[in-house]
């Protein structure tokens, strides 16, 4: 849903861009932008998609927001208006606070490493060769595996004592660990799985971004006296800024919208140590039947995600159009 919103927002930017182009080609810009032919045409193109987005995305969003101010006891006839009481209840819920904290650790601990690793892969695999294409496909493979399947796979890896990980660690003389059962470790185990799964995906974006940087920028830099590190620092990283911002948003959204592995591997436990916000919402809605609380938590997380994406895309857009 968040991604859809981003798409729509980008599409609307395009509409404006198209319309501007159309008017620029005409002789004068007498007409107010909203009424000229370019705008009308652009909006007509956009209309069908917009209609479905309103029906299935924006209307439910508003509905959820509305619902978060009401309480409906289980079995009761009518909804009761409670103003911000649901929000008060939510913040008083220790499980929710834990889930938020976990989610923050999970976000920082997966987004940054998977982006850095993805970027590293991309750097070493930009030039095409048969060997490198092979490696690329291998690194991209985890992305193709559904998260549920990946989680099932990693249960075997993490299995205490006889799992793949412990099996090899034992050969090094390291004792067996309860990777998913120890509350101090479980969240980090999930994080490693997430990094494994996403780094290859981000690599793909970075490869595309790197291939868009003209060779002559590097050639000019080498003649100006740049070494490997300086080329990375002064040429690659700044020219890759738009790609990085984009990947960053995708990664953040990913962190808040995927909990399949929590469901498959730990069910939020042990002792809530792997509970994430989305799983908390799921639990409240379907296990504890506290729909009001789930609704309220949904509103909050959607707001956070919206804020993140708008902010990031803004900076990304302001961050320089590089065609020169």
């Amino acid at each position: 849903m968040m991604v859809d919103a981003c798409h729509l927002w980008l599409a609307m930017r395009k509409v404006k861009y198209m319309a501007d182009n159309v008017t620029a080609r005409g002789k004068k810009r007498l007409l107010k932008p909203f009424y000229n032919a370019g705008y009308i045409k652009a909006w007509l193109y956009l209309a069908p998609a917009l209609l479905f987005l309103i029906l299935f995305t924006y209307y439910p969003m508003v509905q959820v927001l509305w619902d978060s101010f009401f309480l409906k006891e289980y079995g009761a006839e009518k909804k009761l208006f409670v103003a911000f009481d649901n929000y008060r209840r939510l913040f008083a819920d220790e499980d929710f606070i834990t889930a938020v904290k976990n989610n923050l650790i999970y976000a920082i601990g997966t987004v940054i490493p998977s982006i850095v690793i993805g970027f590293g892969f991309a750097l070493s695999l930009t030039q095409s060769s048969r060997f490198k294409n092979c490696i690329r496909s291998l690194l991209f493979f985890p992305t193709l595996v559904p998260l549920v399947a990946a989680a099932a796979l990693w249960i075997f890896i993490y299995f205490p004592g006889i799992g793949l990980l412990d099996y090899y660690l034992a050969k090094l003389g390291i004792q067996s660990t309860d990777w998913l059962g120890d509350p101090d470790i479980a969240l980090y185990s999930l994080m490693i799985l997430t990094i494994w799964k996403n780094a290859g995906f981000y690599m793909l974006f970075f490869i595309a971004g790197l291939q868009g940087i003209g060779e002559e920028y590097y050639e000019a830099a080498s003649l100006e006296g740049a070494g490997w590190w300086q080329k990375l620092r002064y040429v690659t990283l700044p020219l890759l800024a738009p790609t990085s911002a984009f990947v960053f948003v995708i990664a953040l959204i990913h962190v808040f919208t995927h909990v399949d592995h929590v469901i498959v591997m730990t069910l939020g436990g042990p002792m809530g140590s792997t509970n994430l916000v989305l799983y908390y919402i799921y639990q409240n809605a379907h296990e504890f039947n506290d729909l009001a609380k789930a609704t309220t938590a949904t509103v909050l997380s959607v707001m956070v995600l919206l804020a993140i994406s708008f902010f990031s895309i803004r900076t990304m857009e302001r961050g320089i159009h590089y065609e020169s």
Binding site: G214, E216, Y217, E219, A220, V235, L239, A241, I320
Partner: peptide
């Protein structure tokens, strides 16, 4: 260079 290769971010 033919297209100057100026850095767009500088």
């Amino acid at each position: 260079f033919q297209n100057y290769a100026l850095y767009p971010h500088m």
